[in-house]
Amino acid sequence: MRPGSLDEQLRELAERTGVPCIDGKKTTSHGWRTGANTDLIAASVPLTERNKAGRWAEGSHTGDTVYDRRHGAGAHDPVAQVPLYGGPAHAVAAQARADATADQKE
């Protein structure tokens, strides 16, 4: 792949869903890293572990500043418009989380 190919493909898919921007910013592959870190924050994963997962320097606060995008959460869910496996993507993800939680309790 040439540089920028992934972002171009992601932007095209975002345009197709009718959501080219999230929180006023164009959809980019950079958001995948942000989304993962934001989910880890919601799961109470400590910054030191998030630094390892995000490949940021030890002691860095990047995961708590640049990549913390909890603002706007729930205000507009663009994923709700994307069908996945025959239903809304968020429903599939919610079911997968519930199944994983049930498996952990067994």
Score class of each variant (00 low, 15 high):
105 K>H: 15
35 G>I: 02
21 C>G: 09
79 V>S: 15
97 R>D: 14
91 A>W: 05
92 V>G: 07
4 G>V: 05
83 P>I: 12
72 G>Q: 00
24 G>N: 08
35 G>P: 04
75 A>V: 12
99 D>V: 12
83 P>A: 13
18 G>Q: 02
57 A>C: 08
4 G>Y: 01
27 T>P: 03
25 K>M: 11
51 N>V: 02
45 V>E: 03
13 L>M: 15
9 Q>R: 15
3 P>L: 10
17 T>K: 05
29 S>P: 00
77 D>C: 08
56 W>M: 00
30 H>G: 08
24 G>M: 04
7 D>R: 01
67 Y>I: 00
40 L>G: 00
71 H>G: 11
55 R>M: 01
42 A>P: 12
25 K>G: 09
2 R>A: 14
20 P>M: 01
62 T>P: 00
61 H>N: 12
32 W>L: 15
6 L>A: 15
104 Q>L: 13
86 G>V: 03
26 K>D: 15
19 V>I: 11
25 K>P: 03
2 R>F: 04
68 D>I: 03
71 H>V: 08
21 C>D: 12
17 T>I: 08
63 G>C: 03
68 D>Q: 10
34 T>E: 05
11 R>E: 07
72 G>L: 04
52 K>R: 11
93 A>D: 13
59 G>C: 04
10 L>S: 07
91 A>G: 14
98 A>R: 09
30 H>S: 09
29 S>I: 04
22 I>Y: 10
94 A>M: 10
76 H>G: 14
49 E>L: 06
73 A>S: 10
90 H>I: 13
43 A>F: 04
86 G>P: 07
103 D>N: 09
102 A>I: 11
71 H>I: 09
14 A>D: 04
80 A>Y: 06
42 A>Q: 12
47 L>R: 02
101 T>Q: 10
89 A>S: 14
88 P>C: 04
61 H>G: 03
4 G>M: 02
17 T>W: 01
105 K>V: 15
56 W>R: 01
43 A>D: 05
42 A>Y: 15
52 K>Q: 06
54 G>F: 00
94 A>K: 05
20 P>T: 01
68 D>K: 12
60 S>A: 10
47 L>T: 00
42 A>V: 09
34 T>D: 02
44 S>F: 12
82 V>R: 12
36 A>G: 14
21 C>W: 07
44 S>G: 12
31 G>C: 05
58 E>P: 08
33 R>F: 07
38 T>G: 00
18 G>I: 08
